[in-house]
Design a binder for these strands. Structure first.
Length: 947
RNA sequence: GCCCGGGUGGCGGAACGGCAGACGCGGUGGACUCAAAAUCCACUGUCCGAAAGGGCGUGUGGGUUCGAAUCCCACCCCGGGCACCA
């Protein structure tokens, strides 16, 4: 280990010297405010410093200050953004880079409960500890801009934004959010009809409030929600896993109706999908968001029934002639009216059964279709057929209208259901011959012979009535359009678009979150707390714990911790009509609230007039050109936030944009997902994890722990797998620069890879060799020769390296940038081995190229080279194009695609000359008998001779 | 089941359709040393060969091309997302 070696050389670059250099430079950067980025206006303004520099906003997904501290997997992204930010500073940009803390929410609260300390205290300790750990990495952050979501000065504005949303509605015609006051004006002056046809001015406050609630983008609604007794709170759809458990804590989650705060994110579904096209994001993340929103075009169709129309949504209106039955979700509100007396018992029993089944059970059971006939029939609007109406749990109340038309010939689920219950199956499309051939059956329109439904393009058959004929059509789009037109013309439905996305459940029944800036009056009408009374501070509360409910008790009731602070919960306010008593809303916001806008607060962290100054926002995030909606220039974080945070933040940003508070349509222009650092974990014979650090690799490649054989697997680094490696250990053994460099060198920035403490020594040696090439290890004196002239080969390699490294850093390819620097250094090592010092003309650009990656070491060398100032704003070296071209080029010569020899040719040789030289070569002659069939000369690349 | 990624030495990984394996780890040999560590130098895909050199090699099988890790088709395996979404 580095710290244990007894170095005879007192100035060798080792962990102790690195620690000394690193802490000195960290102190100096802090004292000199090196990384403070000037704003165009406000308290952080500095017009001179702004002049003629491009701005660059680099952002990391900010961390939860969790308290267990960092392991080496955490800072990977932060190091990457730091390297990029430092590089771009040297390229002349005004770089904004900072980091804040996402400190509200369940994890922080849960941790506080586990350790028995108040979340406020715990959170502050954790933030302090994380700041220390991150500072030790030498990240070039503007500390003035670091905010925590739990700061009152911060959540004051989170509450303000909430009120903006509460006091806004979505104008579908204008396709944007507008202030609710404008809607009231339109109702009052009659430009917009009041739903229900009432005279707005004649309505009382309560009635008005009720109508407005249907428009507000934040509203309280009785709806099926995900109740999680184990966490004592409801959670959002996005926070429920596929097997019906909570994302956090893995407790069972139950669907049940509750009155809850919702956000009307569905109003933005189209724009959230469409604007993805403007963003420079990984295609996979865009796809995940598109799928999550789940836009599908189709039609709404009304089926007449004895109790009125039953409306269904279908993506295949073109198959409507083949609808032979209908299926409603068991919870569908029309079921009670539809059911006939003789079927009442069966239907009631089925509904009971379906209701008792948790989501988990519904999914775990295999997919055998179940269902029961209601006894009622409905009318297929196209052919007038009476078709039976069933209920079945494969139809979900939460999607579409909770009812479907079943076309068993064209939908596999309907097909299975029809087979199960002997319902008719009628073909509306004739499958192509291959379809039958692949299934080894004779072509037939008799669906009884089909093994499954046919989904695809086929010729329409049996699809005509008096006024609509699809027969003979071959394209789905054409048939859909024709059907939709007919439905609309005949008043049976219309083309429509349906979304999988539901409104966002926005309240949590916990303590550690932003209180809602809402009070309730006696009539049950919510009122906004006036802006000048923000923040609504979270009251101190000793007993903040949620009441521990039985995690499996679906019927348990939420217990609101804020309700325990009675003197806080009940307030007297004057909202314009004299002082009155109100009851505060006792919910808190979900953790996502704070992370929906934090990047904006970095821009203007001390502003107490606005959440962000408009000019400041426009400078850092304004749109740039036609297809560039503005936003953060580079946003780096884990792929796990693909749909949650990234969707919610886009939604809030768009509302604020619509209301005129922002110039940018989108918060994050370019998104990059860094990979994860994984680590080997080891289990013993009892399947229990053992300390990975204590495992020994045996000569035969097997692994043992205390002599006992163990098995290896790879997983996320952390406590539970007992495989965490802390940055602190790496600082002690190698220093921060080595850790930074190793993390960047391990592999491409966007792929996950296993940590290997054994390999880190390679980068440590690299830094030692750099040091030795520039500094005398015995005296600590610089060995650089001021007037020495580098040979041609060295100058050429230097400039090729400059060119290469810049290109790699531009594209966040840190691993290959490092490889090029190692190559250069290996060459310099050979150079210095013979004669004396490295020429200054080589040493200086080399040190500058190293600076983004290993800033402490580079600063130290730069200073030894005689420069008084930090190199942070030194220009990154620029390659001399003249030195990038060689005088002569070595061409590999292939015969029939195999390299047989090499020839050296002047760089400016003509293809004919190269061909002649190649053919004249002795080795080539051995393989080529007589005249070659063909010769390919690729200038600058190679020669291939086809014999 | 559907939709995305990805399979290259002992390991992490490089390769605008143009010399496969850059760079690092590990390994082997050498120099220095009384010795060791550290450092420096050389070698290190695999098979045949004393060497020169040659054969084979990027998950599998086909194809396009003068030339394929790279492009196309089919399949296998691994990772991730979604999943009775009408």
């Amino acid at each position: 280990m580095a710290t244990e070696t007894t170095d005879a050389t007192p100035f060798r670059y080792n962990a102790d010297l690195a620690a000394d250099i690193e802490s000195r430079w960290q102190d100096r950067w802090e004292a000199e405010k090196t990384f403070e980025a000037p704003n165009p206006a406000g308290p952080l303004a500095d017009a001179d410093a702004l002049s003629d520099r491009n701005k660059l906003f680099v952002l990391d997904m900010f961390p939860y200050p969790s308290g267990v501290g960092l392991h080496v997997g955490h800072p990977l992204g932060y190091i990457g953004t730091d390297v990029y930010g430092r590089y771009r500073r040297m390229k002349g940009d005004n770089v904004l880079h900072s980091i804040g803390y996402d400190a509200f929410g369940l994890p922080a609260e849960q941790y506080a409960i586990d350790t028995g300390t108040h979340p406020r205290v715990r959170t502050e300790q954790n933030i302090a500890n994380m700041r220390r750990q991150l500072r030790r990495l030498g990240l070039a952050h503007d500390q003035r801009r670091s905010v925590a979501t739990t700061d009152e000065d911060y959540y004051r504005w989170t509450q303000w934004i909430f009120l903006q949303i509460f006091n806004a509605w979505y104008d579908a015609e204008a396709d944007k959010a507008r202030p609710i006051s404008e809607l009231e004006t339109e109702f009052a002056d009659g430009t917009r009809e009041v739903p229900g046809g009432a005279d707005w001015n004649a309505l009382d406050g309560e009635a008005k409030a009720e109508i407005l609630a249907d428009y507000r983008l934040a509203y309280v609604h009785e709806a099926p929600v995900n109740w999680c007794p184990g966490l004592g709170t409801v959670v959002a759809n996005e926070e429920v896993t596929a097997d019906g458990r909570s994302d956090r804590g893995n407790y069972p989650v139950f669907k049940r109706n509750m009155r809850q705060w919702m956000m009307r994110i569905t109003s933005y579904a189209d724009r959230l999908i469409d604007d993805l096209d403007l963003l420079d994001w990984p295609e996979s993340i865009k796809t995940m968001q598109r799928n999550w929103i789940g836009r599908s075009a189709g039609a709404r169709v009304d089926f007449a029934s004895p109790v009125g129309p039953i409306t269904v949504f279908t993506t295949r209106p073109d198959t409507l002639f083949g609808a032979t039955f209908m299926v409603l979700a068991p919870e569908h509100p029309l079921v009670d009216e539809l059911v006939t007396p003789d079927q009442a018992d069966a239907v009631a029993a089925y509904r009971r059964e379906a209701g008792a089944k948790s989501d988990v059970a519904r999914q775990v059971e295999d997919r055998d279709k179940t269902g029961v006939f209601t006894g009622a029939t409905a009318t297929n609007p196209l052919n007038g057929n009476q078709i039976p109406v069933w209920i079945a749990d494969y139809v979900l109340m939460g999607y579409g209208t909770g009812a479907i038309m079943a076309v068993p010939s064209g939908d596999q689920r309907d097909f299975e259901f029809a087979r199960q219950f002997g319902l008719p199956i009628v073909a509306t499309q004739e499958p192509p011959a291959e379809w039958f051939a692949e299934r080894d059956i004779d072509p037939s329109l008799d669906c009884d012979t089909w093994p499954e439904a046919f989904v695809g393009e086929g010729t329409y058959v049996q699809s005509s009535n008096d006024s609509l004929t699809l027969d003979g059509m071959t394209e789905i789009a054409e048939a859909k359009a024709a059907t939709n037109a007919w439905l609309e013309a005949n008043g049976h439905g219309e083309g429509t678009i349906n979304y999988r996305l539901r409104d966002w459940l926005f309240a949590r029944q916990r303590y550690w979150g932003e209180p809602f800036p809402i009070v309730w009056d006696d009539a049950g009408v919510p009122h906004a707390v006036p802006e000048d009374q923000l923040p609504v501070a979270l009251p101190p509360l000793e007993d903040f714990k949620p009441v521990a409910a039985d995690p499996n008790d679906a019927e348990s009731e939420p217990d609101l911790p804020l309700g325990r602070v009675t003197e806080w919960a009940n307030v007297t306010l004057d909202l314009g009509d004299g002082p009155k008593r109100y009851r505060r809303d006792l919910n808190v916001m979900p953790q996502w609230a704070g992370s929906c806008w934090y990047e904006l607060r970095y821009l203007d962290p001390t502003n107490d007039e606005r959440f962000v100054d408009r000019a400041v926002e426009e400078y850092w995030m304004g749109p740039e050109g036609e297809d560039h909606p503005g936003g953060v220039d580079l946003y780096v974080g884990g792929v796990e936030h693909a749909v949650l945070h990234l969707l919610y933040a886009r939604f809030w940003h768009k509302i604020l944009f619509d209301l005129g508070h922002l110039s940018s349509k989108e918060p994050y222009y370019r998104l990059f997902n860094q990979g994860y650092i994984q680590a080997a974990a080891y289990k013993d014979a009892r399947e229990i994890y053992v300390e990975a650090a204590e495992v020994v690799e045996e000569a035969d490649g097997s692994f043992t722990h205390n002599g006992e054989p163990v098995t290896r697997e790879f997983g996320k680094m952390g406590k539970s797998l007992k495989n965490a490696v802390t940055p602190d250990d790496m600082y002690d053994e190698y220093g921060a620069d080595t850790l930074r460099l190793y993390e960047m060198a391990m592999g491409p920035f966007d792929t996950s890879r296993p940590w290997s403490t054994r390999d880190i020594v390679g980068m440590y040696r690299f830094l030692q060799r750099i040091w030795r090439n520039l500094v005398d290890e015995d005296t600590g004196e610089l060995t650089v020769a001021d007037d020495a002239v580098a040979n041609d080969e060295t100058m050429r390699l230097l400039h090729v390296t400059i060119d290469g490294v810049a290109g790699e850093l531009d594209n966040l390819r840190f691993n290959t940038a490092i490889a090029k620097l190692v190559e250069l250094n290996n060459h310099l090592t050979k150079l210095t081995a013979g004669e004396g010092g490295l020429p200054r003309s080589v040493a200086e650009p080399f040190v500058l190229m190293l600076a983004p990656l290993v800033p402490h070491l580079a600063e130290e060398l730069w200073s030894k080279l005689g420069h008084a100032d930090s190199l942070t704003y030194e220009a990154f070296p620029v390659a001399d194009p003249a030195l990038l071209v060689e005088d002569s080029i070595e061409y590999p010569v292939q015969v029939n695609g195999k390299v047989r020899t090499r020839i050296t040719v002047p760089a400016d040789a003509a293809p004919d000359a190269i061909e002649a030289l190649a053919l004249a070569d002795e080795r080539v002659q051995e393989f080529v008998d007589g005249a070659p069939k063909k010769v390919i000369v690729v200038p600058g690349r190679l020669v291939n001779i086809v014999a």
